[in-house]
């Protein structure tokens, strides 16, 4: 077990290294010259050169051979690549090309509004889909089971964008139950979040219920459930004490791996409901080609995901004696 955990711990930096490499290639190397964007249209070549020097773009991409020849071996690593590999893990993301502010500051500001949207949405979605799936295990084989599965497929088949457009138009526009869009801090802002959360839950319900239904039905077939019934345990107790507890392993795995992505916010929902979170920021950064922001966001979420995965694996190793060195 400890060998497994140690191996797992040593493997993690390798994956972080891979993420750094991918973010460098995708967001720093390929997209072209951000100096041009900072300088704005019509800037002279000399201004662009100056900005390039400021943000380190005048350095070679991978290794600095010329620098090493002139200034000794240490300067070999004075390149864009090593700069990225050194700065990013220390959360030094540089400045936003478009907003002219530190990326870390922008991200810090956007995380709040995003989490206020995604956390309630996630909890509501989890609670609803687990309750429905638990209910289904009692109705297995009846027409209700079939109806719910059909409803799931229908829910999954409507494009998310269409759900948002129709939902916003109908519930906020025509029926006027909710404000169409907007944002406010504190308690006054809650009303702006209600409709996006509902639409998000609706859109996610189909695939989630289907997933948990399969998990629960698999458990419901297990011998221990039959034993429980046979010794006269009531239905409620079987469902909550026996089935849910065992199904929790699959549920927790899914939950832990989903949590990092909550920080990303919701690209579409934030845009349509004018919530100034990270999803909104991402769309903005994509259209303005603000790659420093996208690279930073990618790195942070990937890091959280890797950490979440590590924690689950270690917890499993601690709990399950069958896991050992493979």
């Amino acid at each position: 077990m400890w060998a497994y955990i140690l191996r797992r711990l040593l493997y993690t930096p390798l994956i972080v290294f891979g993420v750094l490499l991918v973010t460098f290639v995708l967001f720093k190397l390929v997209p072209g010259n951000p100096a041009r964007i900072i300088a704005g249209p019509g800037a002279s070549e000399s201004t662009i050169k100056e900005i390039e020097a400021q943000i380190g773009l005048d350095k070679p991409r991978w290794i600095n051979v010329d620098g090493a020849r002139e200034q000794g071996f240490g300067a070999l690593f004075d390149s864009q690549f090593f700069r990225h590999m050194w700065d990013t893990p220390r959360f030094e993301f540089g400045d936003s090309v478009y907003k002219k502010k530190a990326v870390s500051e922008i991200l810090y500001k956007g995380a709040g509004p995003s989490l206020k949207l995604t956390v309630p949405m996630f909890i509501a979605l989890l609670a609803t889909s687990i309750s429905i799936s638990l209910g289904i295990t009692m109705l297995r084989g009846t027409v209700w089971d079939l109806l719910i599965v059909i409803a799931c497929v229908i829910g999954m088949s409507i494009p998310f964008l269409a759900v948002i457009l129709f939902g916003q138009d109908w519930f906020a526009g025509k029926l006027d139950w909710f404000p169409i869009r907007g944002y406010d801090t504190g308690f006054a802002g809650v009303r702006y979040y209600v409709l996006p959360v509902i639409l998000g839950v609706f859109a996610g319900l189909g695939s989630d219920v289907r997933f948990y239904r399969t998990v629960m039905l698999d458990e419901a077939k297990a011998d221990y459930i039959r034993t429980a019934y046979a010794k006269g345990v009531g239905t409620g107790r079987v469902l909550f004490r026996h089935l849910l507890k065992n199904a929790m392993i699959a549920v927790i795995t899914r939950v832990v791996l989903a949590i990092p992505f909550l920080f990303l916010g919701s690209l579409l929902l934030e845009r349509f409901f004018s919530i100034p979170g990270l999803g909104f920021l991402m769309v903005e950064s994509i259209s303005s080609r603000d790659y420093n922001v996208i690279a930073a966001l990618t790195y942070i979420v990937a890091l959280l995901f890797i950490f979440g995965q590590l924690m689950t694996d270690i917890c499993y190793a601690l709990v399950d004696p069958r896991i050992s060195l493979k």
């Binding site: 390798l14 994956i15 891979g18 993420v19 490499l21 991918v22 973010t23 995708l26 967001f27 390929v30 997209p31 072209g32 992505f261 990303l264 690209l267 991402m282 994509i286 996208i294 966001l297 990618t298 979420v301 990937a302 995901f305 890797i306 995965q309």
Partner: peptide, 25 residues
């Protein structure tokens, strides 16, 4: 396994967007 673990850690949508952006040019 290393390769797909790396790709799996990066938010899928961001990865698609980055590729779509890069490949256009």
């Amino acid at each position: 396994v290393w390769l797909y673990s790396v790709l799996a850690s990066i938010p899928g949508l961001l990865l698609i967007l980055a590729f779509a952006f890069v490949l256009r040019d």
